[in-house]
């Protein structure tokens, strides 16, 4: 009992420690790596190892982003909107499909081959078809984002729902629990850690989906900026688009991680496990 108490106390102490310092300690490595990449990029262009018209300097690229902030922001918001909407639809439909598939073996047998088929068809190849069907607006791009993000959501949720401790379910049946109550109180929360690992894959794929959609049709969004810049051999704009696109992906990924931290503080991968303190 005393040991238990000690662990609880120590967990609290760790939580209260300087958060900023902890954050710096955790994140200096990737930042250092990123800085090194920028350094190499800078060196390659500064000493003209590669000609400037092929690879613009990091300074010029950042300058361009600053100069055309309004233009780039507009197109980023378009791509961001398509991505987020596509992601949300993929999550809602994906979770619902997973629940149905776990609830009924018949549904699973019916849906699974179809799902697999939808996954193996190259989305890039069918994207033009969506433009033909749905026009040049946002819709075809959102559809591509949904299609590409859907699969990891379904797979992770099905795995999560099936991984519930069987003894827990037996216990629930001795409690006279209805299937609905068992789902709400046990199955669903237990599957969330699995779902979130799928969501992290899905959100980055959704960006790709939206951009692929933009490649195929329409004249706004980061995808179309890049396509235009490519056509004009405007490499600085091409690089600016790529940079912003990556940033968008990272921000959305971080948002999903933040939600995970908020919702699953209890999960092993999330909790700061107690460590012994040396004085």
């Amino acid at each position: 009992m005393k040991g238990d108490l000690l662990i609880v106390v120590q967990t609290v102490t760790i939580r209260d420690r300087d958060r900023l310092g902890e954050l710096a300690e955790r994140s200096w490595r990737p930042f250092a790596l990123l800085a090194a990449c920028f350094g190499i990029w800078w060196a390659l262009t500064e000493f003209e190892v590669v000609p400037r018209y092929l690879v613009p300097s990091p300074g010029a690229t950042l300058q361009l982003i600053a100069d055309k902030a309004g233009y780039i922001t507009h197109h980023t918001l378009v791509t961001g909107y398509e991505t987020v909407l596509g992601f949300v639809i993929a999550v809602v439909v994906g979770v619902a499909a997973a629940v149905l598939m776990v609830a009924s073996a018949e549904v699973e047998k019916t849906l699974y081959p179809l799902l697999l088929f939808a996954q193996v068809v190259p989305k890039i190849a069918i994207a033009p078809l969506f433009v033909v069907w749905l026009g040049f607006g946002l819709t075809p791009r959102i559809v591509v984002a949904v299609l590409i993000a859907f699969f990891p959501v379904v797979i992770s949720m099905v795995t999560g729902l099936k991984s519930v401790d069987p003894e827990m379910l037996q216990l629930a049946s001795t409690m006279g629990a209805s299937p609905a109550k068992t789902f709400v109180k046990i199955r669903f929360p237990a599957s969330l850690p699995f779902l979130f690992s799928g969501l992290k894959v899905a959100v980055t794929l959704a960006v790709t989906g939206a951009v692929v959609g933009e490649f195929v049709g329409g004249n706004d969004g980061l995808g179309s900026i890049i396509l235009q810049a490519n056509g004009n051999l405007d490499t600085p704009m091409l690089f600016a688009g790529l940079l912003v696109m990556s940033l968008l992906g990272v921000v959305l990924f971080a948002a999903v991680e933040f939600a995970e931290r908020l919702l699953l503080p209890w999960h092993a991968s999330r909790r700061g496990d107690a460590v012994t303190v040396t004085y």
Partner: peptide
């Protein structure tokens, strides 16, 4: 009935 298993089978959250 009340049931107790070898593993506590508690809900982590």
């Amino acid at each position: 009935v009340g049931y107790v298993f070898q593993r506590a089978a508690l809900l982590e959250w």
